[in-house]
């Protein structure tokens, strides 16, 4: 790819639109909407995403002149690049908390296994409640972000039923994941059952935007523990980056396949 791809006039229009969206989103700022004992936290990133969708040429035809499929594809690449400084910032919250993180070390490592909780909850719902077929395997084996998508693509191909399942959850997660992760942790925290450290370290699910939404919600709910929340979440997210693919490949996917063969032997 040549320099012109990064420096073309059309991509500058894209950066300009993003800048305008970001300024509006940050000017609105964090909003807390109390509901009973908990509160729904609305974050600038949510408004930014919603504004991006509203301007998206597939929703608003008028922008198609500037946001061509080529520019949109470029914008897709920019997501990964724009999230990188955020990931670095998260890293800098980990170092100062290193003592608290080592103290919580066993929990931090074991909670990675907790990511298999997706199978515990989503598998029975998909198979027994919704009567889904082989899509189930791709859909429920992991949180279905990019590395998990790549794994299914390699094993089954994305045009298989398993591929349809992983893509469906991927696309849905892309559309509503940030919103879910901004709401869910505050509601679970409001139950008053779980240690804030447990809630914080579970934010590291291997997706930058979900991590951002989750920690944004928790730090708004418990501002006095901000440094601890960010440090633990950041450490857990690094662990997921490093282990997620392997947990998926060697544990989660074989386990989901085995469960599915037991539950629906006629489909194999």
């Amino acid at each position: 790819m040549s320099q012109s791809r990064a420096l073309g006039a059309d991509t500058f229009v894209l950066h300009g639109i993003v800048l305008a969206i970001v300024i509006v989103a940050e000017a609105i700022g964090v909003l807390r909407i109390p509901i009973g004992i908990a509160a729904i936290v609305l974050l600038p990133m949510l408004y930014a995403f919603a504004m991006g969708i509203a301007i998206n040429p597939n929703i608003t035809r008028a922008t198609a002149r500037y946001l061509t499929p080529r520019v949109q594809k470029f914008a897709g690449g920019m997501i990964t690049i724009a999230i990188t400084p955020f990931v670095a910032k998260f890293g800098t919250t980990v170092g100062p908390q290193i003592d608290a993180i080592i103290e919580a070390g066993p929990a931090l490592i074991l909670q990675e296994i907790g990511n298999l909780g997706t199978i515990v909850i989503a598998f029975p719902v998909a198979v027994y409640l919704l009567g889904m077929g082989r899509e189930t395997v791709g859909a429920v084996y992991s949180i279905d972000r990019e590395p998990n998508l790549a794994l299914i693509a390699e094993k089954y191909g994305l045009d298989s039923p398993e591929g349809a399942g992983v893509m469906g959850v991927y696309a849905t997660g892309t559309l509503i994941g940030t919103f879910i992760f901004a709401i869910m942790p505050t509601l679970i925290h409001a139950m008053g059952v779980f240690d804030i450290r447990a809630l914080a370290m579970s934010c590291g699910v291997g997706s930058g935007s979900m991590l951002a939404a989750c920690t944004g919600a928790l730090t708004t709910a418990v501002p006095e523990q901000k440094d601890l929340i960010l440090g633990l979440a950041g450490a857990s997210n690094v662990l997921t980056y490093a282990t997620g693919l392997y947990v998926g490949l060697f544990i989660a996917l074989p386990l989901t396949q085995w469960l599915f063969r037991k539950a629906r032997p006629e489909l194999y």
């Binding site: 919580a104 929990a107 931090l108 074991l110 909670q111 990675e112 296994i113 907790g114 990511n115 298999l116 909780g117 997706t118 199978i119 515990v120 909850i121 989503a122 719902v125 998909a126 919704l130 889904m132 189930t136 859909a139 429920v140 992991s142 949180i143 279905d144 399942g165 469906g168 959850v169 849905t172 997660g173 509503i176 994941g177 879910i180 992760f181 869910m184 942790p185 679970i188 059952v193 779980f194 240690d195 450290r197 447990a198 809630l199 370290m201 579970s202 934010c203 699910v205 979900m210 989750c214 857990s236």
Partner: peptide, 19 residues
């Protein structure tokens, strides 16, 4: 529905084990 269960399960599974 499955996607919401996936996100809830991933998060809650980790929360319970960590806690």
């Amino acid at each position: 529905i499955v996607a919401i269960c996936v996100m809830l399960g991933t998060y809650l599974g980790s929360v319970v084990i960590a806690d």
